[in-house]
């Protein structure tokens, strides 16, 4: 069993190592000049150096603050509106067409408007992250909550649960798998969007580091923030996966 796990992990490591090897080979054999593609060793050394650098950590912190603020607001709004729309037909009648229009709208296009309205600082970026992460969370909450097995609700009602408590006692927990799926997608999107927003206009954050490095053709420094955001995304995804495993321990097939 565990050897099988090991081979799975090794199999997965292969293409990543392969990419690294090609990267190294391109550099070592002189196919790519260092000004275009710095060798991987150099990039990771620089990353390690930077992790000891307070300024770099501040940039990571700025990115994380925007990411979490935007994501959490999206979770609160998405879950709240999704549940409300699933339970109250009147709310559904209003929310459904709005979502139909707003969900496929490319939110980045709104970014200039957000800058005009909220300024260049945190607020406009957080709003953009929220707008982008909101819809997947809202939609999966809505579908999860409208698919709840009727008989679960009946069982709870018969056991004496007041109608107004059904939302919290049955529908929300029953929709949890779906809600968490939405959150997972929302989180990936938040990582992506916060970085883009920082690239387009910012004075700090990982995205800004990339743009700054690109302006001065510091190729090594261009790779560092990209790898950092990828690792951050992996870590956050892992955390959410753990949370999901724990919260859904009773549900079939997590």
């Amino acid at each position: 069993m565990s050897t099988r796990r090991l081979t799975t992990v090794l199999m997965g490591a292969l293409p990543i190592l392969f990419v690294l090897a090609i990267w190294q080979a391109l550099c070592s054999f002189g196919y790519a000049p260092p000004s275009l593609l710095p060798p991987p060793g150099k990039v990771f050394l620089r990353l390690a150096q930077q992790l000891g650098n307070v300024g770099f950590l501040d940039d990571i912190l700025a990115t994380l603050i925007r990411l979490f603020a935007g994501f959490l607001i999206a979770v609160v709004l998405g879950v709240g509106i999704g549940l409300a729309a699933a339970v109250v037909p009147a709310i559904n009648a209003v929310v459904r067409p709005l979502v139909q229009v707003l969900a496929p709208l490319p939110k980045v296009a709104l970014y200039p408007a957000l800058i005009i309205l909220f300024g260049f600082d945190h607020a406009s970026k957080i709003t953009l992250v929220t707008l982008d992460a909101l819809f997947p969370i809202l939609l999966s909450t809505y579908y999860g909550a409208s698919m709840v097995e009727q008989k679960l609700v009946w069982s709870a009602l018969a056991a004496g649960t007041p109608r107004w408590q059904i939302l919290f006692k049955v529908i929300a927990p029953a929709a949890l798998p779906s809600i968490l799926t939405g959150c997972r997608i929302g989180l990936v999107i938040s990582c992506i969007v916060v970085f883009l927003a920082e690239m387009i206009s910012s004075t700090d954050g990982l995205g800004h580091l990339l743009v700054g490095a690109a302006r001065t053709f510091q190729t090594v420094d261009m790779f560092v923030p990209l790898i950092t955001i990828s690792l951050l995304g992996l870590m956050l995804n892992g955390l959410l996966y753990g949370l999901r495993k724990y919260l859904l321990r009773g549900f079939p097939e997590v």
Binding site: T8, I192, T219, I229, L234
Partner: peptide
């Protein structure tokens, strides 16, 4: 098993952020 980890690593990278590179 072969492709999943690589894709997982690429997923949270904003593709448009690769533009400068």
């Amino acid at each position: 098993a072969f492709f999943n980890p690589l894709l997982m690593m690429i997923y949270p990278v904003p593709k448009a952020a690769l533009m400068p590179v």
